[in-house]
Each structure stands twice: as C-alpha cells, then as structure tokens.
C-alpha cells in the first residue's frame, strides 16, 4: 500500500499534471481532486498546485479559497492533514489564513521565470524531512505575485518558532520580507512556498537536477511510516 496524495484542480490551475507526475515519480499514488467536489476521496495528503486559479481575479487565490474542495481541505488541515501549497497554492493558503501573511506583486513588477536557489531552514515539516537542515537546493520560480509580506510581529513569531521553511539564497527575486520563500503552520503539516519543486523531479528535463523530489519522498515516507 502506498500513500494517496490528492492534487487539486481549480479553473486556471496549470501545474496539476506535473504535480501528479511528481507524486508518481516519488512512488505515491496521485488522486485528482476537483474544485467543486467537497469529497477528498480518502487521500492521505493534499497538494495545491500552481497556476492562475480563477484568473487571479480580485487577488491571487482569493476566489479559489471559497471553493467547495477548500472547505474540506481547511477542515482537514486543522485536524493534521498534510497540505502543500506551491505558488498559486501558497497564495490560496494565505488567503485561507491557514498560513499567515499575504502575497503581493513582485517589487520590480516583472514576471520571473528562472532557476532559484533556496536554503532549507526547517527540515522537520511533513514535506521537508528528506532534506538536510541548511541544504541549498535549486528549483524553478515563475510568478509575478511572489512578494511575501506580513507584519513585524508575525515575521518575528515565524522566525522564533522556526516556521520559515525556505529562504531565497544569493538573491531575493521579488522583495519578499526577510527573503522568505516558504513557511509552515505551527503544527508543521501545512507548508507553502513560491518556487516549484514539482518541476524538478527528473534529470531528463529542466536543469537536470532533481532537487524538488524530496518534497514528495518526504511526505511519502511520513505517511507510509505512520500507517
């Protein structure tokens, strides 16, 4: 028995197929979840993939946050269901307030598409256990609304509790406060980040690195170990 990992598709989601593939490459079973279906089909974890759900209308993630599937995911996350939000998925997670802060337009106003170096600052979450603490990884970054903001009190709290999971290394690509690329909730089951691990799981494509695969092997090991 392997783990079943749900991958949500909203209207405007782009990276659901790559995410399903990444789940499969890691050895787990991807389960497509549809935004209008409240049923999570007994999945063991959920990934909210990247894209432009609902055209980013109003604010990125603001409309998806109220979709039927999110009701179940929000309730599940509060009960410990592991949830990973990538890019637009991270934006959805901040809009639901499962993760603190918000995402705004990049400070230089340009869409960015590049390989980005990150430092893993917390390898004790459900999604990062296969990385070394302080390990540097390089995975694609592609967005225009990637500037992470939160007030000073929240930022200090995140730092004090070790909830900054990823920081941009060498270069801050969008003006994110304190170089934050990804964070987790207090329990460590919900993680969001802007860069795209699902695009870096096979040596054949991209940079030839598989630095993103660890997200998916981490959660698989955790779920299989737990069952």
């Amino acid at each position: 028995m392997t783990a079943r990992i749900g991958v949500v598709t909203f209207p405007g989601t782009l990276d659901d197929r790559d995410t399903q593939r990444a789940v499969r490459v890691a050895g787990a079973e991807p389960v497509p979840l549809w935004h209008r279906d409240k049923d999570l089909h007994q999945v063991d974890a959920v990934v909210l993939p990247g894209g432009f759900s609902y055209g980013d209308y109003l604010r990125a993630g603001a409309i998806s946050r109220f979709s039927p599937v999110m009701e179940s995911i929000i309730a599940g996350a509060k009960d410990g269901l592991p949830v990973l939000g990538i890019c637009n998925g991270f934006q959805v997670l901040t809009e639901t307030h499962l993760l603190p802060g918000a995402m705004l337009r990049n400070n230089h106003l340009h869409f960015i598409c590049r390989d980005q170096k990150l430092r893993v600052e917390n390898n004790s979450t459900s999604w990062t256990a296969d990385y070394e603490q302080g390990q540097e990884i390089s995975i694609p970054l592609k967005n225009i609304d990637g500037r992470y903001v939160a007030d000073e009190r929240v930022l200090d709290e995140l730092e004090a509790e070790g909830r900054v999971v990823f920081r941009y290394a060498d270069w801050n690509p969008n003006g994110s406060l304190r170089d934050i690329a990804g964070i987790t909730n207090a329990a460590g089951n919900v993680v969001g980040l802007m860069p795209h691990p699902e695009h870096a799981v096979e040596s054949l494509i991209g940079t030839g690195r598989t630095d993103g695969l660890g997200f998916f092997t981490s959660i698989l090991k955790k779920l299989v170990h737990a069952s």
Binding site: R105, N107, H108, V149, G175
Partner: peptide
C-alpha cells in the same frame, strides 16, 4: 486600498 505600510510598486510606477 493597500495599508499605508505596504509597498505599492504599481503606484510607484
């Protein structure tokens, strides 16, 4: 409106 303390690069542009 964005809160006063939040950087607004579109307004700046």
């Amino acid at each position: 409106m964005l809160k006063p303390e939040i950087l607004d690069p579109q307004g700046q542009a």
